[in-house]
């Protein structure tokens, strides 16, 4: 008798837990969807504003000044001489170069808030560095072991990233992480040469792609980190 009651209550408890979990999941998904929709709307609005003339000149001026200051900082680093004559030369040459190529350094319209990107980049850097270190130990092991246990294959996958900078980051970090190099990209399809069958399965989880999408604030995707951020706000609201 008591055992059946116990089992029934346990069942009920599990049911309630399941229900709560489903509800929570739905809530999270809808909130994330709302967040991504607002983001894409904002991007569209920014693009429309970009097409109208005033915004265009404003953006060009912003690009010009940002390029100028980055190049001037680089000049001071290179020159190392802080007297008036060399600084004047620096200002002149930075003006020339930022006139010649002001649209190169910040050509990407979709780029997000730079401060947040920097913060996320430095938060993600230790993971990447540890990956690079493991990759090198792996290569050193393969190269120095007498039997050389390699089994190469080519795998391909489609990426969901959009801006070119995050493509660069993805391709270069695939090249630098254990056992894989990016060998070709055709129409958004990455061809990856994997030195081992095991590392090939590691790449399929898409962990790196998520991290890069998070760092470079790709607009239209739901990332785990954002859902966690939203969930905390919802918890406080409740």
């Amino acid at each position: 008798m008591e055992v059946t009651v116990l089992i029934q209550t346990a069942d009920k408890a599990f049911e309630i837990l399941e229900k709560a979990r489903n509800e929570a999941r739905e809530l999270l998904y809808s909130s994330a969807k709302i967040a991504s929709e607002t983001k894409s709307l904002e991007a569209k609005r920014a693009e429309q504003a970009f097409l109208s003339g005033a915004q265009h000149t404003k953006l060009a001026i912003r690009n010009y000044t940002l390029t100028f200051f980055m190049l001037f900082a680089f000049w001071v680093l290179l020159s190392g001489r802080l007297d008036l004559f060399h600084l004047t030369l620096g200002v002149l040459s930075c003006l020339l170069i930022s006139y010649l190529s002001y649209d190169l350094l910040f050509a990407n319209v979709r780029i997000g808030d730079i401060r947040i990107m920097f913060k996320r980049f430095f938060a993600a850097a230790p993971w990447f560095l540890s990956q690079i270190f493991t990759a090198n130990l792996h290569v050193a092991y393969l190269a120095l072991s007498p039997k050389m246990p390699i089994d190469p294959s080519i795998l391909r996958f489609n990426t969901k990233l959009e801006s070119d900078i995050s493509w660069v980051a993805l391709a270069n970090s695939i090249t630098l992480t254990p056992g894989t190099i990016t060998i070709d990209i055709r129409d958004g399809e990455f061809f990856v040469h994997a030195i081992d069958k095991k590392v090939a399965s590691d790449l399929d989880t898409g962990e790196m792609e998520d991290k890069i999408a998070h760092v470079f604030m790709e607009a239209d995707h739901i990332y785990i980190q954002d859902i966690l951020d939203v969930s905390r706000i919802f918890g406080e609201l409740k």
Partner: peptide, 14 residues
């Protein structure tokens, strides 16, 4: 391609 694994990764960290 496997040689590129060595130079691409090894030289960067080195």
């Amino acid at each position: 391609y496997t040689r590129l694994h060595a130079t691409g990764k090894g030289d960067t960290l080195a």
